[in-house]
Design a protein around this nucleic acid. Sequence first.
DNA 1: CAGGGAGCTTGAGCTGGCGCAATCTCCGGC
DNA 2: GCCGGAGATTGCGCCAGCTCAAGCTCCCTG
Lengths: 240, 240
Amino acid sequence: MAAVDRSLVANLPMFAGLSPAEQDELLREARSIRYPKDTAVFDQGAEAARFFLLLHGHLRVEKTTSQGQQSVVRYVSAGELFGVAQAMNLTHYPATAVAAVDSIALAWPSSSWQRLIVKYPSLAASALQTVGSRLQDTQARVMEISNEQVEQRVAHALLRLAKQAGRKVDTGVEIDFPISRQDIAEMTGTTLHTVSRVLSAWENEGLVEGGRQRIILRDAHRLHALAEGEEAIQSRKRSS
Amino acid sequence: MAAVDRSLVANLPMFAGLSPAEQDELLREARSIRYPKDTAVFDQGAEAARFFLLLHGHLRVEKTTSQGQQSVVRYVSAGELFGVAQAMNLTHYPATAVAAVDSIALAWPSSSWQRLIVKYPSLAASALQTVGSRLQDTQARVMEISNEQVEQRVAHALLRLAKQAGRKVDTGVEIDFPISRQDIAEMTGTTLHTVSRVLSAWENEGLVEGGRQRIILRDAHRLHALAEGEEAIQSRKRSS
DNA sequence: CAGGGAGCTTGAGCTGGCGCAATCTCCGGC
DNA sequence: GCCGGAGATTGCGCCAGCTCAAGCTCCCTG
């Protein structure tokens, strides 16, 4: 239960409205926990005993249906609140969160939630915004999956990932954590095979550059055009 | 600006934690507005000037992409909070809300939101829960659209509608507002044509009973089986 | 440094459901 | 009571993307 230094979190929106003393007090109630790559922070269906703030790393949040089909709901990056099931009156986590890389999170007991939001109203506001923007994202995904072709959806997904967790490298922007074709398929509602084909094609055109669980966007601009449906698609069709 | 009687709203969860005097005060700040069928309560992209509580009727919430594709995001029933864009820090409404039948809503100015949640914390909790359960629903929809066949998705959609706005009639449960095949298509990420075919087939099997903008579920149990993928599908295939 | 396995690629064939188009039916307005 | 139009139905052809299947490559482990 390492003590957490205020400087790690002071400039997160969640802590913005609070005095240093208040920040310290909030942090005193939290535990800092390390999650090695591929370990679960919590499991779908488990009792929602805690809520979290990711300090470092990246998590993959996935959901499995009763029939066993899995989808990647989203990725969590450092600074984000997550596992706030309790705030929405859920007693159990609706999804599983797995560390995509070695990660560190602050954990508060869910039972403190009620008390904390009364004492620190900015916490409620933060949660509302977190959940709100997550809702926006999810609705955007519904529209994408219903209305767009696979290529566009994959392009959108990559651009979103790059925005959220992109790291500049010499040939473009690399997604800053290991992500498999399977993961992308589960984000876009398609299959591993189709994603692989799409990325191969893009690689030939110099749009992206890939590898085992690695993706680098080389031409975000053209990808964006693709995502919006401005069919630069023709070129490839002819070249085949 | 009709005065609103407390009795209309007193047993909604949103008002549950408040004293009658507080309820009255909250209501004093609201206007009650009538929306005839097919009129918009607010439009996607418009400035989020107010937030609402639906007192009576049903609204269809729809979203249009920049490319002009439309989806039905959800239906709002009486008692629900909606248009709380401001609470999630959006300055503009992300979707359009249209009265599916003649409806009545309470409207508060968005500018009051901050003040009101400080004064009535249960309002924030309510909003958080509203948004939270909406997020759950939307995520469930993503999983359905990605993993299920059209038939299952339509079955799920009908069952959800019936649960939310079902009215018992002698032959089964009728959805309590006009809803077209097109609307269902836009909820399930498919086309008018496919929905029509599915419903026709089901009608022949006695599962549902339809009409112009009307749907009655005659056999919710078998529909549920269908939705869960327990293929009673075979029977129809053979009989064709 | 060899062996195994996870992740990826690629081919071939099939099909669910979409696009298009024609027709029908019912409701509301005049 | 008739007409117009929105909503619904249905047939047909097609293709994007899925399924099934095989093989490859790189990384990690021992």
